[in-house]
Design a protein around this nucleic acid. Structure first.
Length: 522
RNA sequence: GGCCCCUUCGUCUAGCGGUCUAGGACUCCGGCCUUUCACGCCGGCAACACGGGUUCGAGUCCCGUAGGGGUCACCA
């Protein structure tokens, strides 16, 4: 049997991080079994702009390297892959269900059903539709229509017995048919509802394993009823736990941003994103730009591998110690049996730890390549970049080392890309290291002359110069180095001092020191 | 409320009856390194929800309780 899995996003305009994890599990399972991973678009409620709302989702998957064998843009033998284009299939299924008596026309008005529901609630009994307005013959239908009633199609669910679902993750789960409702599968206007559509599609696409979020577990009985009534062979089910809020067990939702922002780590991540986005002139509307949405990570320069690896371990593990997986390894090692049953909460700090790790592992050339677009977008570097810029960025990226966690962090070093009179001084650092340290200013003044006389300006030479200066003046290096850093970068912190000077070059260093000294009393 | 699911350090998790005075990772807290900030290194704090069984023996099996969550639409 060919393994075929699917992920069915609604075209909402963004890709939710929890959804990605579900998609990832589907993708891994399909790849592991040399099967196919299908993307089906759940657009049954006819959004206006499906195409526009779909693009960010497809883009997100592409960025993460989760490729689909069939679906939008690639099509496939079982298409169309948009539910809005499959109405005829659903219609045929409805007719078959009606024919076999598994479904019926129901002429109840919504308020009539609602009244029954409320009565049951008041009586504290289990609600079960009376089927009063059920019409199974042409005569009955005509009579109701005479009254001006319209029909929906309902499932004629069994009212006794039970169903055991053998879930690949949860084991056997038992449901009583009597608790199930005669769900509507087709509206009066002929449009079909989700549960019917999903069952028909999964069958048409020959999906072998339905791997989806656990919130669908309770919906599974009715889907099984539909499938069996239609004579379909059942797929295997695997209900994965959802991704929960930071520090909680509640399902992560994009609508509760303000709540998550109260979580310190989440807020920090969000701030990191905002800081970078601000310099890039990005749209930062919280609806589309926040750590619950995959786009966020791409835009601020996260590594897709880090996100994927983190998500993989959110609810799954191989053993008691393996943390890092290449794509090949995760495809090889993944298994549904080892997916946890309990929800896992989204931990920004852990995600950052993976990002740091992958960034450290990234070859220098690729790091530079990741950073350049950010410098361009922030207009710190022209597009196309001048030919010597790559060398300069390489030096900075090297010197920055682990200080670059996401590619957008390169913008923390913008002082290297602006004019000597344009970089800004951090007030605090300026005060502490210069204004309130007149002796350091004096040392800076004399070290400026040493630099001025320097014939070579590489980090190694500069270190020898400064160390010699320190020995000669009989001072501690800290007495000059902090002042020097503020003088040439405007900042109190940064990477190695000598690398800083080298990257700036002699001319810039002298000009910057002069500019700084000019701001101070003599 | 009915039904269903879940419950090991703050978080992600290992554990499938004895090797568990519960292991790893992230976080946090010390210390070292150091020109700042990071990195790195060393060390430390920290958990089997509770109560009954079963068993020679339970984190591991069973039953309750509590807590958390999901689902009960002419949404997906």
């Amino acid at each position: 049997m060919t393994v075929r899995t699917r992920f069915a996003p609604s075209p909402t305009g963004y890709l939710h991080i929890g959804g990605v994890r579900t998609a990832l599990f589907n993708w891994l399972f399909a790849r592991q079994h040399n099967g196919q991973f299908v993307l089906r678009i759940d657009d049954t409620d006819q959004q206006r702009n499906v195409e526009a709302a779909l693009q960010p989702i497809l883009e997100g998957f592409r960025w993460l390297g989760i490729d689909w064998d069939e679906g939008p843009e690639v099509d496939g033998p079982y298409g169309p892959y948009f539910q809005s284009q499959r109405a005829d299939r659903y219609q045929a299924a409805v007719e078959k269900l009606l024919e076999t008596g598994a479904a019926y026309h129901d002429y109840a008005r919504p308020e009539e059903v609602q009244a029954e529901r409320e009565a049951a609630e008041k009586a504290k009994t289990q609600f079960s539709y009376s089927r009063t307005w059920m019409a199974e013959s042409a005569e009955q239908r005509a009579a109701y229509e005479q009254e001006g009633r319209q029909a929906v199609v309902r499932l004629k669910m069994p009212r006794e017995g039970s169903l055991i679902i053998s879930d690949l993750i949860r084991g056997d789960v038992t449901f009583e048919w009597a608790r199930e409702q005669d769900h509507v599968i087709q509206r009066a206007d002929g449009s079909c509802l989700y549960h019917l559509a999903t069952v028909v599609d999964d069958h048409d696409f020959q999906i072998s394993h339905v791997i989806r979020a656990e919130e669908h577990l309770s919906n599974t009985p009715r889907q099984i009823f539909i499938a069996q009534s239609l004579g379909y062979e059942l797929p295997q089910f695997a209900h994965v736990p959802y991704v929960a809020e930071p520090g909680s067990r509640t399902k992560l939702s994009k609508r509760k941003l303000s709540k998550y922002l109260k979580n310190r780590d989440f807020a920090n991540l969000n701030d990191l994103g905002l800081k970078i986005a601000d310099q890039l002139d990005l749209e930062t509307d919280t609806d589309t730009f926040n750590p619950v949405i995959v786009d966020f990570y791409e835009q601020v320069g996260f590594l897709a591998d880090a996100i994927v690896n983190y998500l993989l371990l959110l609810g799954w593990s191989l053993d008691d110690r393996t943390e890092f997986f290449s794509r090949e390894e995760m495809i090889r090692d993944f298994s549904l049996e080892r997916v946890n049953k309990a929800p896992a909460s989204f931990d920004c700090l852990k995600l950052m730890a993976f990002e740091k790790h992958y960034m450290q592992e990234l070859p220098l050339k690729q790091k530079v390549a990741k950073c350049l677009p950010f410098l361009q977008q922030a207009k710190l570097v022209t597009s196309p970049p001048p030919c010597d810029i790559s060398e300069k960025v390489t030096k900075i990226v090297t010197a920055a080392g682990d200080r670059l966690t996401v590619a957008g962090d390169i913008l923390d070093f913008k002082e290297f890309f602006v004019g000597n009179n344009e970089f800004e001084y951090e007030e605090k650092a300026f005060g502490k290291r210069l204004e309130k340290a007149p002796e350091s200013v004096e040392l800076l003044r004399s070290f400026r002359e040493v630099l001025s006389d320097a014939t070579a300006f590489d980090a190694e030479t500069l270190e020898i110069l400064l160390k010699g200066f320190v020995t000669e003046k009989e001072i501690k290096i800290g007495q000059i180095i902090h002042a020097l850093r503020v003088a040439v970068t405007g900042k109190g912190v940064g990477f190695g001092m000598f690398e800083t000077l080298e990257v700036l070059g002699k001319d810039s260093c002298l000009k910057r020191i002069d500019r700084t000294l000019a701001k101070l009393p003599t």
